[in-house]
């Protein structure tokens, strides 16, 4: 494996980590708001609070990790994406800022407020929508580079079917991943009422998520045939993804093994996400930037990878401790602590 591939794999892993933990968080915000509006709040509110309170900051770091890491490994991305993404990037930051801080305010600080809840719920869907712009423009055709100036073609972005397809996929995926996790968590908490509601959410978002996946897959064929064809070469990964999806949905439907069901959902997204990423290579930004021309020097790559391994040795045990205390500690989960 070359340093370039190793680097992008590490980053992609973190992005995948963010995809999962952030989806759980974003979706939870939406469900919390939605269930409040439909007066079912008492049922799931405390589940959501108990899981999310200790971990929201950790979620954010996954994202920071990705965008700091990509500039470290591939400094040229700063030039292309940095210039093009000023507006969508800033909008995403502002939404994240509102969400993160208001989350802390509402949870630790003030009394209940409808407005906070609305912000919390709405940003949960808007952030994934704005963040996916990055993946969309990486397919090419949304950016113009003219004598050294990078320019984003907003008209193209907002009128393209593909870009809206990706937004739709992001939103339904967030809701599905989140509901699948919260179902599992409610089951562990032995909270029957919450379980039955969340299970219903999980089942109702399952099919939209797989259908949007297929739609986006087909739309990509028109958008970027090169990428599409190399995706077809990795067809078996999509088959794995689909089998994992079917098995997960079946388990939830049958009301059993919610933990395994959630792991299968993670497998579903892992396979699809890595197949998408691997077939995108070598391009970071089609057709301008590949992992080979933007790469940092070799000393730096070795240093970054060393730092990464050292960091993992530190983080994995700490994350394990966090999960043991809050996720796998039956008394905490059941609300007796």
């Amino acid at each position: 494996m070359t340093y370039e591939v190793l680097g992008i794999t590490v980053l992609w892993l973190f992005l995948y980590g963010y995809l999962i933990v952030a989806s759980v968080d974003f979706g939870a915000g939406f469900f919390s708001y939605y269930s409040k509006r439909t007066n079912k709040n008492h049922v799931i509110h405390s589940i959501i609070q108990r899981y999310l309170s200790p971990v929201w900051e950790v979620t954010n770091v996954f994202l920071v990790f990705f965008f700091i890491g990509i500039v470290g490994f591939f400094p040229d991305t700063a030039y292309y994406y940095g210039t093009a993404l000023l507006v969508p990037g800033s909008v995403a930051i502002i939404l994240l800022a509102i969400r993160g801080s208001y989350y802390a305010f509402a949870t630790y600080g003030a009394k209940e407020s409808r407005f906070y809840d609305f912000l919390y719920g709405a940003t949960g869907l808007l952030i994934p929508a704005s963040l996916t712009t990055v993946l969309t423009i990486s397919e090419g055709g949304y950016i113009r580079v003219e004598n050294g100036n990078v320019e984003m073609l907003y008209g193209e972005l907002f009128t393209s079917l593909y870009s809206w397809g990706v937004v739709g996929l992001a939103i339904v995926s967030v809701l599905f991943i989140s509901a699948a996790f919260l179902t599992y968590y409610a089951a562990r908490a032995k909270d029957e009422e919450a379980l039955s509601l969340l299970r219903k959410y999980a089942l109702s978002w399952a099919f939209p998520s797989i259908i949007m996946g297929i739609v986006v897959f087909l739309l990509l064929g028109r958008r970027n045939p090169v990428h599409f064809n190399s995706m077809l070469d990795l067809w078996w990964m999509f088959v794995i993804s689909f089998i994992a999806f079917a098995a997960a949905t079946w388990l939830i439907w049958k009301k059993r093994n919610y933990g395994i069901a959630f792991i299968l959902v993670m497998v579903q997204y892992f396979a699809a996400f890595f197949a998408y990423g691997a077939s995108h290579l070598p391009y970071l930004l089609y057709p301008y930037l590949t992992i080979y021309d933007g790469f940092t020097n070799e000393t730096m790559a070795i240093a970054l990878i060393t730092a990464f391994i050292g960091g993992l040795l530190l983080l994995v045990p700490s994350l394990y401790l966090l999960m043991r205390l809050f996720l796998f500690d039956a008394e905490y989960v059941e609300g007796r602590r």
């Binding site: 954010n60 700091i68 940092t296 730092a307 700490s318 966090l322």
Partner: peptide, 19 residues
């Protein structure tokens, strides 16, 4: 890139234990 990358690790570490 290296110290910035390591900074994020430091945050990560802090965030976990703060929680």
């Amino acid at each position: 890139g290296l110290p910035m990358f390591m900074e994020v690790f430091a945050f990560f570490f802090e965030a976990i234990f703060l929680g």
